[in-house]
């Protein structure tokens, strides 16, 4: 229930990645996930905006452009609440590793960029357990725009912040809005204990850094017998380190 208290006793570990689209955070989390599985750790993966109960409402709101800054904020909080209740908290109670692709900081950054009161958004999410490790993958604005443009056929209405009326032009609005989000993320890194990772460096080097940061958290985490781990995953850190040394990436 909503009390700030009883998060300290949770035996699990919560690891979250943050960053704007195109920062490579999902790739890094995926690589971490595979490594943890290959080591036999029990993991639970959860993704922003994916609650089976709430997701359809958010989708409809986006498709029909029904969302305003406040309803955008509230419906994403509902989605997060549902996943916290059904997925994140029980997994932490069960003592396993939870990997979250985006966490409350996504809402803090996006909603503030939409003009929603910062204090209010933080209060809204006070039911969220604090992560054991939060990683922010930082890319400069120009680089992230280049990456998204390369990956997408078109930029979506809400990710360009078109609801804000910053510019009539989609590209220009996208640039302005993403710029605001980057500023919010920068401030969040100071406000919270968020580790900043330079996402301009090679993918492999970033992953080595991620694993180094995660390793101290793995103590006491339950492991499956390695025989139960799919053989194609039984590679571990060694091969990656070798490939990094070999100069790839």
């Amino acid at each position: 229930m909503v009390t700030s208290a009883d998060f300290t006793d949770l035996p699990g570990r919560l690891i979250v990645v943050e960053g704007i689209d195109g920062s490579g955070k999902s790739t890094q989390l995926d690589l971490l996930h595979k490594w943890l599985k290959s080591e036999g750790y029990v993991t639970v993966f959860t993704e922003w905006n994916s609650s089976p109960i709430v997701r359809d409402t958010t989708k409809r709101g986006k498709r029909k452009q029904l969302l305003t800054p406040m309803s955008f904020s509230l419906i994403h909080a509902a989605d997060f609440a549902s996943r916290t209740h059904e997925q994140i908290l029980p997994a932490l109670q069960a003592g396993v590793i939870v990997l979250a692709d985006r966490y409350v900081y996504t809402a803090f950054a996006r909603d503030a960029a939409r003009g929603v009161n910062r204090r209010w958004v933080r209060d809204l999410y006070s039911f969220a357990p604090p992560p054991n490790l939060a990683l922010y993958f930082h890319v400069p604005l120009d680089e992230s725009i280049r990456r998204i443009a390369a990956a997408r056929a078109e930029i979506k209405y809400y990710e360009a912040g078109m609801d804000m009326g910053l510019s009539e032009d989609l590209q220009e609005s996208f640039r302005l809005f993403q710029g605001r989000i980057l500023e919010e993320y920068d401030a969040l890194c100071d406000e919270y204990d968020i580790t900043r990772i330079d996402a301009a460096q090679s993918l492999v080097n970033q992953q080595l850094l991620v694993r180094e940061l995660v390793e101290p958290l793995l103590e006491d985490m339950p492991k499956q017998e390695l025989s139960r781990v799919p053989t194609h995953l039984q590679t571990g850190l060694a091969s990656l380190a070798a490939s990094a040394a070999g100069g790839s990436g």
Binding site: M1, V2, S51, I53, V54, T57, L66, M70, S71, L74, I75, A77, A78, A81, S82, T84, H85, E86, F127
Partner: peptide
Amino acid sequence: HTLDPITLNLFYATDFWD
């Protein structure tokens, strides 16, 4: 009957605001 109190409440809060 799948809603927990917090999610249900935030759903209603969104409904109210909308």
